[in-house]
Nucleic acid binder design. Structure first.
Length: 282
DNA sequence: TCATCACCTGGAGA
DNA sequence: ATCTCCAGGTGAT
């Protein structure tokens, strides 16, 4: 049994990073690529049956250092205190990539539904702890899927994105190992060449699966948050959708303000504002 | 470079 | 019941 202290499972899993997780009783079960991960919150940490849990929950992150680093104002300090134990995760890159391509103009429950359908149709059925699960589909399987089959999973207009994006990985044009080694800006540029990936989705993939902690995904919520609490600091923010240029400029300023772990700041703020507005999680 | 707009689909609210 | 509106955006014009 592995133990990881200082992680709050509920905060972490219910912060919009992952979709294929379920809680039964006090036990969380999730799909990560071809692995099924199981974790339970214990009074003194977190237990699981797999060492893969350590990597998944970014045990190597020095949270004390990170929190000190991002604590640039009282709001972020309070929020980090309130959601103590919330962490970023290190997801399977391909699953993360497809998940956030599917997230476009959709809601968390619906994204989860689409991904579950993909797993059922294209994943591998496996037995684990006397229960059955479906793993996340392999790259080549999705790359060879027809748009019609993808549509049957409820993807709608995202079906063509998923098909093309999967082909890019299958062909090697998109190589997650290279992107992980690359610096943030070149990895971002590369991901944005994929059909169906813009700034926001690219930043999610970089932050949640490719170790780019300076990524700061700016979606409607984040934009709302910045407008509501940070309009003095990041002026010229409006509620209108961000243009390419504005997104880039804003990210630059965010990085300047929150520092190299800006992605963590984003996650705390996102969690806070969604909870305030009572938005649904998994 | 920027502003609009269409887009699949499931769920919530009128 | 039936309708409208919206949801963690992106691509095309």
């Amino acid at each position: 049994m592995q133990k990881i202290s200082k992680i709050n499972l509920d905060f972490t899993i219910n912060s919009g990073q992952v979709f294929l997780w379920d809680k039964k009783g006090d036990k969380w079960t999730g799909v990560n690529g071809e692995d099924i991960l199981i974790a339970t919150q214990e009074p003194f940490g977190l237990t699981s049956s797999s060492t893969k849990i350590n990597n998944f929950f970014r045990e190597d992150d020095d949270l004390e250092k990170i929190l000190t680093n991002i604590s640039r104002d009282s709001l972020i300090r309070r929020t980090a205190r309130r959601f103590k134990g919330l962490r970023l995760m290190r997801q399977d890159p391909f699953q993360c990539y497809i998940s956030f391509i599917c997230s476009s103009n959709s809601s968390i429950p619906n994204i989860k539904l689409m991904l579950q359908n993909l797993c059922k149709k294209f994943g591998t059925r496996i037995e684990f702890n006397r229960q059955h699960f479906f793993t996340f589909p392999e790259v080549k399987t999705l790359a060879n899927a027809s748009v019609k089959e993808l549509l049957s999973c409820g993807l709608g207009f995202r079906a063509k994105y998923v098909r093309e994006a999967s082909k890019d990985v299958a062909s090697g044009r998109i190589d997650f190992n290279l992107l992980r080694k690359a610096d943030y800006k070149s990895a971002l540029k590369s991901l944005k060449t994929v059909y169906g990936i813009g700034n926001k989705v690219a930043d999610c993939i970089l932050l949640f699966s490719l170790d780019k902690l300076e990524a700061f995904p700016i979606d409607r919520w984040t934009q709302k948050i910045l407008l509501k609490y940070y309009s003095k600091i990041f002026c010229d923010i409006t509620e209108k959708s961000l243009t390419e240029k504005k997104y880039e400029n804003l990210h630059e300023k965010l990085l300047e303000y929150f520092g190299p772990y800006a992605g963590y700041a984003q996650q705390f703020l996102f969690k806070m504002e969604r909870d305030i507005n009572k938005k649904s999680w998994l």
